[in-house]
Amino acid sequence: MNNAHSIILEAKGLSKRFGGLIAVDEVSIAVQKLGVTSIIGPNGAGKSTLFNLLSGTFLPDNGAVHIDGVDVTRLSPEGRLFSGMARSFQITNLFFDLTVMDNLRIASQVLEPRSHLYLPLEKSEIALKRANELLEEFGLEDSRGQLAGALSHGQQRRLEIAVTLATRPKLLLLDEPTQGMSQVDTHETADLIKRVGLNTTVLLIEHDVDLVMDLSKTVFVMAQGRKLAEGAPGEVRKNPLVQAAYFGEELA
């Protein structure tokens, strides 16, 4: 049984309807602190809608979302940022015409006191320090002066994860971070996510089931808008309902 103090994100009875389509139907999940938790499911299962409900991009028709026991159901994504949640998107969300360093420094600006709001970026010492920390942590020192738009796809995704961590969130939502990556970039990103999970709770949507099974301590499986199963990767892999949801293909 989960201890309430070990839960960082809890959703209770979330539902979302688009016209006659019930995209998410009474879904409840509880995400434990630290490590990687993943949401998987076949196309159309409701994963992305659930993710958008958890992040505040969509408001639910029914149900509630709590972060560390605090109700954030009606908060915007920006409001949830100040509650300790940050997220990435399927499509890279960077300032392509700015350098790697400037992307990180702008993202870190929220750490500055409000009195520094209108100071030039080069005067923002806290943001500058955090940006330099992220350059080192994510192996981007050699790219600090490059335009974000000139980076490889793998480097852009790495930078985007760094940007989402600029505010030191306690909960990071990653939406298909390895989409479109080469095998080498995928492995490097997986290692990076593992390291991030040592100090930050990571909730992941990912199409690469093998990657999910390797990274995660807990896996939630969605199908037809409902939670089909949850548990440790080994349990989920053997679940006959999960096998059926993936059209009879073994999650091996």
Rank of each mutant, 00 (worst) to 15 (best):
Q156L: 05
K227F: 08
I8Q: 04
H207R: 13
S55D: 07
V202C: 03
T73V: 11
Q179S: 15
R80T: 01
I7W: 01
I91R: 14
P169G: 05
D214S: 15
P120I: 04
L147M: 15
K33P: 00
E26Q: 13
R17D: 07
P233L: 14
G84Q: 01
G154C: 14
H5F: 05
Y246Q: 11
R87Y: 03
I40W: 02
V209M: 06
S115P: 00
D191F: 04
S108G: 06
L119T: 03
L241D: 14
T167S: 02
E133G: 06
A107P: 05
G41F: 02
S143W: 03
Q179P: 00
F58M: 01
E78C: 07
Q155F: 10
S152V: 09
G46V: 10
S76Q: 05
A4S: 02
D97M: 04
L94K: 08
S88P: 11
D61I: 00
P113W: 05
G35W: 08
E249V: 15
E230M: 03
L104C: 13
G56T: 03
L198T: 13
K47G: 07
P240I: 01
D214P: 04
D175G: 13
I67F: 06
M85R: 04
F138D: 07
L171C: 13
S15M: 08
R80L: 05
G231A: 11
I161C: 10
N93C: 07
M101G: 01
F51N: 11
A45T: 06
V219K: 12
N93W: 06
V100P: 07
A162L: 02
G139Y: 02
L159A: 14
L159S: 14
S15Q: 06
K16M: 12
V24Q: 12
V212P: 04
R158D: 11
V65Y: 09
K227N: 11
K12D: 14
A150N: 15
Y118I: 09
A162R: 02
S6N: 15
S88I: 07
P233E: 12
A190V: 08
G63F: 00
L172I: 10
L119F: 13
V65H: 11
A162T: 01
R237A: 15
Q146W: 05
S28L: 10
P169C: 12
L81Q: 12
E133W: 05
V202D: 03
D191A: 14
L128S: 13
S83N: 12
K33V: 08
L53H: 04
G84M: 00
T218I: 08
I161M: 15
K123C: 13
P120T: 08
N52S: 07
I22W: 09
I39R: 03
E249I: 15
G180V: 08
H116R: 14
L211I: 05
G35N: 08
E235T: 06
T57D: 09
D71P: 14
N93G: 02
I161G: 10
S55P: 10
G225V: 10
D191L: 13
F89G: 06
A245E: 02
L172N: 10
E235M: 09
A166E: 02
D61S: 10
G46P: 10
S6A: 14
E141A: 12
F18S: 01
L34V: 02
M222W: 05
V31E: 03
L134E: 02
E249M: 14
S143N: 13
R74L: 10
N43Y: 06
R74A: 12
Q183W: 00
K123E: 15
T37Q: 06
S182V: 06
A107T: 11
T201Q: 05
S38I: 11
V36Y: 04
I205Y: 00
I126K: 00
